[in-house]
Design a protein around this nucleic acid. Structure first.
Lengths: 192, 192
DNA sequence: ATTATAAAACTAATGGTATTAGTTTTAATC
DNA sequence: GATTAAAACTAATACCATTAGTTTTATAAT
């Protein structure tokens, strides 16, 4: 019996385009309604409001990240796996700056769906560092570490935080390589 | 002949308190005017508008960072210097989350004052890595690296991106240590 | 084909925001 | 004590999210 008009996926898709081309700040109910040729109150038939729209963007971003990281990791192990994960991370953040930003600003601790989607992305990082000889707490610290440097680089690059003169891909390559060499060096020290 | 009322430093101080206690989003002309017991249009006697207020916050944050980093670095060199810089960075970000956020969102490429203040902070990172045997481009990449991991950690920690179970200070310590060990390991390889 | 239904669109209205224009107040100087 | 200019004010505008209530319309059942 229902009438079919817009659906949530289309709406999120349009919002994603806005976010990725003009920044997350540009995603308002007003601009989204304009893009979709409807009046902004009509959007409330699909989302609860602006915060809910932002949440949907974050969720969509996390799901896409999971898919792409899983694809990048298949068949890889050791250094190759970490490198593949790192480049997939960088590639996603560059291709979807608005979506990436939406993912960062979704810290609702009691949102189970969001927590689960985020957990799956983190699990990819854990998988990438598997077979590095890290156990227990050490593995958790190492995963936090790789996440920190990836997010930090991507975030500084996006906001133009680095000077322009020197190739950024080389910096990224060196950063990941240095961290991995550090992990290996520390393991050598411990194992004697 | 002028009449003396509010001045810019007081205004920025009040805005900083708002930002650090309630988040940068909470810094609006309305809330700031409320805190200062004036009407919001009166704020236009001191700042050009909300974007200008945010810029003043960013500028103030960068200046404070410079001062604190310089103090932390005096008399230190080698690993000690990098560690001191890193902890000063972490300490500032934890003490002034709103100000730190304001600094991140100030990417006006043609703002010379802001550029200069940011450049001074970056110079502190360069100084911290002095005497690490890095030359030319390699030094620039290494500085970008340490900035990435510091910002990434601080950013993820602030937004609750890490699970709660494991001590974050230990993660931070390990992250910096791993990166430094990586730099040393790579140098050993090159020098044979 | 007609009709009933319920989702999805709409209009109208409210309250909050930044911002501008123009006026009044007031502290410091002469 | 008069002058002055900054700093406060009020009033008004435009844009935003949001709510309430109404109308439209594609679907599903008759």
């Amino acid at each position: 019996m229902p009438r079919i008009g817009l659906d949530l996926p289309n709406l999120v898709h349009a919002a994603t385009e806005l976010a990725d081309t003009q920044g997350l700040e540009a995603v308002t109910l007003a601009t989204l309604a304009l893009k979709l040729n409807i009046r902004s109150p009509s959007l409330y038939n699909h989302v609860k409001g602006l915060p809910d729209l932002r949440r949907q963007l974050a969720l969509s971003g996390l799901i896409q990240m999971s898919e792409q990281f899983k694809y990048a990791l298949t068949g890889k192990s050791g250094d190759d796996a970490v490198r593949a994960f790192s480049y997939a991370y960088l590639t996603f953040a560059r291709a979807h700056p608005g979506l990436y930003e939406a993912v960062q600003r979704a810290p609702e601790p009691d949102d189970k769906l969001l927590q689960k989607a985020g957990g799956e992305v983190v699990q990819m990082a854990v998988d990438a560092l598997k077979g590095y000889g890290l156990e227990g707490d050490e593995a958790i610290h190492a995963v936090r570490g790789i996440r920190s440097l990836l997010h930090g680089f991507v975030s500084l690059e996006r906001q133009g935080g680095f000077g322009i003169s020197l190739n950024l891909d080389v910096t990224f390559e060196m950063l990941v390589h240095t961290y991995l060499e550090g992990l290996k060096a520390i393991r050598r020290k411990i194992e004697g």
